[in-house]
Amino acid sequence: MATTDSAERSGRLSRARILEIALEHFAIHGYRGSSLARIAAEVGISQPGLLHHFPNKAALLMAVLAERDVQDLHATGTDPETLSEMDFAELIAFLVRIARHNVQNRDLVQLAHLTAAEATGSEHPAREWVVGRQKFLQSMIESSLRRGVEDGSVRSDVDPRLTTLVLVAAMEGLENQWLVDDEVDMVGSFVQFAEQLQRAVAPTD
């Protein structure tokens, strides 16, 4: 029994280490430029040993992306089930927490941007993840704005769809500028923009 438990624990540790190293490689080299052999060598295992945990490079990428999403939610202390119930102010606060987390985890941001750039073609294994992530974020923001219009916390003449697109563009645009130039104040700039946006959509007395 002890031997079995030790083997299971060792397997979990190996898998976690593979994901850690693979994230770095995918963030730097992208999916196409990354090599299972190089990832395995840096982990300190054979390529067949890596394939014992992940059957191919596509499966490894998807596991890395899933782990990235989990890290985002854990870092913000947010229950996934509450995301769809947030009002616009709560959602802005959540996005600010994400920005504060991201500025401490450059590889996670670079991974998302590089993967999105590579996945413009339908054949890319992460295409569904990229599209699904974008649609989920847009739907979450747009829904909160529509609820705000209905309950009176958002001006009735606000266009939820357009406001959503502008907010997402600000978030991702600031991340992109920060990746190119780390002197860009990604968090401070986003907080200022978010505060201005909240004032702009708030009802006038």
Rank of each mutant, 00 (worst) to 15 (best):
E67M: 08
E67F: 00
E67K: 13
R68K: 10
R68S: 15
D69G: 15
D69L: 07
D72R: 09
D72Q: 11
L73D: 04
L73G: 04
H74N: 13
A75V: 10
T76W: 03
G77S: 10
G77Y: 09
T78I: 07
T78P: 02
T82Y: 06
L83H: 01
S84C: 08
S84E: 09
E85H: 14
M86N: 05
M86F: 14
M86H: 11
M86P: 01
A89Q: 13
A89E: 14
I92Y: 02
A93K: 05
L95Q: 12
V96Y: 00
R97T: 03
R97I: 00
A99F: 07
V103E: 09
Q104V: 04
Q104L: 14
N105K: 12
R106Q: 14
R106T: 12
R106S: 07
D107W: 04
L108N: 13
Q110L: 14
L111I: 09
L114T: 15
L114W: 09
T115E: 05
T115N: 03
T115A: 03
T115C: 09
A116K: 00
A116L: 03
A116D: 14
A116R: 03
A119K: 08
A119F: 08
A119P: 09
T120V: 14
G121M: 10
S122L: 12
E123W: 12
E123V: 14
P125A: 11
A126W: 11
W129D: 07
V130Y: 02
V130R: 00
V131G: 02
G132M: 02
R133C: 00
Q134G: 12
Q134C: 01
F136E: 08
L137T: 13
S139L: 05
S139D: 14
S139R: 11
M140P: 01
S143W: 02
S144A: 15
R147F: 01
G148C: 12
G148I: 10
V149P: 00
D151P: 05
G152I: 11
V154P: 01
D157W: 10
D157G: 08
V158E: 07
V158T: 13
D159W: 07
P160K: 11
P160E: 07
R161L: 06
R161T: 10
L162P: 00
L162Q: 13
T163I: 06
T164V: 06
T164N: 02
L165I: 11
V166F: 06
V166N: 05
V166T: 09
L167C: 08
V168E: 04
V168L: 11
A169K: 07
A170R: 14
A170N: 10
A170E: 12
A170F: 09
G173L: 02
L174G: 01
L174P: 05
E175H: 03
Q177M: 09
Q177R: 15
L179T: 05
V180A: 15
E183I: 00
V184Y: 04
V184A: 04
V184T: 12
D185F: 01
V187D: 02
V187E: 08
S189T: 08
F190R: 01
F190P: 00
V191I: 15
